[in-house]
């Protein structure tokens, strides 16, 4: 099993994998969450949901159900 954004700990980084393409909603892509980009987990709310991430120069908050679908390679 590969890792997803949901597996990151605060301060950790990963690279979004190419085959996440179909799992990432269009709106997230448009907000800069693209395959090949580095993603850093900045902060989580209680129960680890939502997650506050930095990706491709954008600062976003996403829910865990979305984060779990985005495969990454840990750095």
């Amino acid at each position: 099993m590969g890792s997803t954004i949901a597996d990151l700990k605060i301060g950790e980084c990963g690279i979004i994998e190419d085959f996440s393409l179909n799992a990432i909603p269009l709106k997230l892509l448009e907000m800069g969450c693209l395959p090949g980009q580095e993603v850093e987990l900045l902060q989580v709310a209680p129960f680890k949901d939502p997650l506050y991430i930095k990706v491709n120069g954008s600062y976003l908050a996403i829910r865990i159900e979305t984060a779990e679908k985005i495969n990454i390679i840990r750095l």
């Binding site: 709106k27 600062y59 976003l60 908050a61 829910r63 979305t66």
Partner: peptide
């Protein structure tokens, strides 16, 4: 629907 919000500066 997707929940994704920007955290502005």
């Amino acid at each position: 629907s997707l929940f994704a919000i920007e955290m502005p500066n």
